[in-house]
Amino acid sequence: MQDTFGRHITYLRVSVTDRCDFRCFYCMSEEMQFLPRKDLLSIEELDQVCSTFIERGVRKIRLTGGEPLVRRGIMELIARLSEHKDSGLLDEITLTTNGSQLAKHAHEIKRLGVERINVSVDSLNPEKFAEITRRGNLNQVIEGLEAAKDAGLKVKINTVALKAFNEDELSDMLGWCGTHGFDMTMIETMPLGEIGGNRSDQYLPLTEVRARLEADWTLSPSDHTTGGPSKYMTVAETGQKVGFITPLSDHFCDSCNRMRLTCTGTLYMCLGQDSAVDLRAALRADATLGKLNAAIDQALHLKPKGHEFVIEPGNDGPALKRHMSVTGG
């Protein structure tokens, strides 16, 4: 699959649910209204859409949410997708999780074919962690990370850099990741959805973060890539990698190779644009999948050149009304 700018689409991010057991303050409001379960694609429909993308050239699928491990039937979906790995059509199934359910499920997802996961951890201070997540328990997540290590999963920690909140512990977190054999990716906050707060109070450019890290660590450019937007550095003291995702301070759109499928079957061609195609209607209207493939063709034509995120004084509201948990975190 190739869009009108010549970019090959090989990566599909799939939100299996908008529900989450956390309410991270940079991601969603505390009192969220989640979608009715009847509006969600069934596990069978998720498998059918993913399988169609795989047949058309997608080589990597990331399951996201919300929190994907709270979705009923998620293990069945992973098992079905793993059949494409066995056939050689799919290179990788990965998972992004908040870690709350990992202690229960780490060994099973590894057995079913997931080799690598991203776990969101924005603070190692239990009080700050509870404040960020509004209901999360850091010890529960740490137990999940231990289970993931024990299962043999490769772990990367995702951390959103938040001005005047966790910026003073990012260097220590990088050291903690090195001790445990985790890579780390730092991410700028993104203006998606109403969160009940001022986003300019949260935004911390990663150029500033990297400069501070280099005072404590020896960072050198790495040619490592996972097919995503992160630019990686190697940490000489630990041998692990640290990545930087900069949707605001340094756009990465020229190399974008992905699309995002929501749990309701809406396909977004760009995280930062509203243009979308309804795959659920196409899937349910034509059992031969002709309309589904036509809708995917339409999406390739509509995929924009890039996003237009801005956070600055006087322009600190959401760029888009939908929350990250709807699109797929």
Rank of each mutant, 00 (worst) to 15 (best):
L95R: 08
I93H: 03
H84E: 09
T64C: 12
I109W: 01
N118D: 10
H105W: 03
V119P: 03
S82R: 12
I93W: 01
V49H: 09
I93L: 08
M28V: 01
T96K: 02
V114I: 15
Q101F: 04
K38N: 13
P36K: 06
M32L: 10
C50A: 12
R59E: 08
L89K: 15
I61Y: 09
E31R: 14
G66D: 11
R72G: 13
H84Q: 10
L35H: 07
F34Y: 14
E67F: 01
I93C: 02
I61P: 11
R56H: 05
S51T: 15
A106L: 01
M32W: 07
R116P: 05
L102I: 12
V114T: 09
L69A: 10
R37S: 14
D86S: 14
F53A: 09
S100N: 03
I93Y: 06
M75V: 09
S120P: 06
I117H: 09
E108G: 00
I61N: 11
E31A: 15
C50K: 09
E76M: 08
V49C: 09
L95P: 04
S82T: 12
L102C: 13
R71H: 05
M32Q: 13
R56V: 04
S87A: 15
S42H: 11
A106R: 06
V119Y: 01
Q48Y: 08
Q101N: 14
Q101I: 03
L95Q: 08
